[in-house]
């Protein structure tokens, strides 16, 4: 309420002392309603603030990439090196000319959960928040049984259902294809969690790993030492996020963001480098010379739930 509106209400209140209750109610209501309507008109006429920061520039992504030396390509080298060269090449292009893709070779995945754990460590994920769980399932019936493992990062859909449902414009798709969450804007309504057809978003309930742990400071140091992890800041979206009180990211929707802080510095996402079977590939799908572009073109590549029309940026190879 503006100062003028407040003073009008205040004036009405002062008048009340020497007028009847009916007159007071009359004037008071006029003041309130007048203020509300005036406020509404002012808001309607004011130019809607455009979200010029939707490219992520408000989240400090604008810092230019500084390339570093990589060894020349040799036959039989680790695919990590090739993907890093692909990454460097992509980062030299403007953001809108690259499109990050991930390819997961299910034939190589052994279901070790190294990617899930390293992701949780990289992003300091609390209990209940997970960006890349590995789904494991037994299939068939004895004696013809099999075991399927399926890591599930955020699909970074080209038509993300989670974006248009957000009432606060707190989530959007970057020009390079990554769907991000602005923790400072998110109101924590969890509509996006329901809208995602891959259950790829989780809510930060503010839980801690040491919740309920025994605490005896002079007898043992377990809780105190372990608790240090809980206070470590995460650096998602290249900003420091400390878990204290009820501040963001507590109370926010959270999701995999392909490790933006790493890729902006020329490093591959944490899940890619920690995959012991080299089953996860990452790179610029719009670069025809990149490894991921080659893999996406293979006839046994597929995407999850194609039928819902989300056009995921994550491919699987079977």
């Amino acid at each position: 309420m503006s100062k003028e509106e407040l003073s009008r209400v205040d004036e009405n209140l002062t008048l009340e002392t020497d007028e009847s209750r009916r007159d007071f109610l009359d004037k008071f209501s006029k003041g309130i309603f007048g203020g509300l309507i005036a406020g509404g008109i002012v808001n309607a006429l004011a130019p809607v603030q455009a979200r010029a920061d939707m490219d992520g520039s408000n989240l400090n992504f604008a810092e230019p990439f500084k390339p570093f030396d990589l060894p020349p390509a040799i036959p039989g080298e680790d695919v990590i090196l090739r993907m890093m060269r692909d990454l460097q090449r992509a980062l030299k292009k403007p953001i809108e000319q690259r499109h990050w893709n991930m390819v997961i070779d299910l034939r190589k995945c052994v279901g070790c959960d190294a990617c899930s754990v390293s992701c949780a460590a990289e992003n300091k994920l609390p209990p209940g928040v997970i960006y890349r769980p590995v789904i494991q399932q037994e299939i068939g019936s004895y004696p013809n049984v099999g075991h399927v493992t399926l890591p599930r990062p955020c699909m970074q859909c080209d038509e993300p259902p989670c974006v248009p449902v957000c009432p606060a414009q707190a989530t959007w798709k970057r020009p390079d294809g990554i769907v991000i969450v602005d923790y400072d804007q998110c109101i924590g309504c969890r509509y996006c969690l329901n809208a995602c057809p891959y259950d790829a978003r989780t809510f930060d309930f503010g839980m801690e790993y040491i919740d309920g742990a025994a605490d005896a400071p002079k007898v043992f140091l377990g809780k105190e030492k372990a608790g240090k992890y809980e206070t470590e800041a995460s650096y998602e979206y290249e900003k420091e996020w400390k878990r204290e009180d009820d501040k963001s990211p507590i109370g926010n929707a959270r999701k995999c963001h392909f490790c933006i802080p790493r890729i902006e510095k020329g490093m591959l996402p944490e899940c890619v480098v920690t995959c012991i079977g080299r089953a996860t590939y990452f790179g610029d799908g719009s670069d025809p010379d990149s490894l991921v572009a080659e893999l996406i073109a293979s006839p046994n590549a597929f995407r999850l739930k194609e039928e819902v029309g989300t056009h995921p940026s994550v491919y699987y190879i079977k």
């Binding site: 769980p133 590995v134 789904i135 494991q136 599930r152 995602c196 891959y198 259950d199 999850l304």
Partner: peptide, 8 residues
């Protein structure tokens, strides 16, 4: 949304 995710 994906079978088996509850146990992942």
């Amino acid at each position: 949304e994906l079978k088996g995710i509850a146990d992942a």
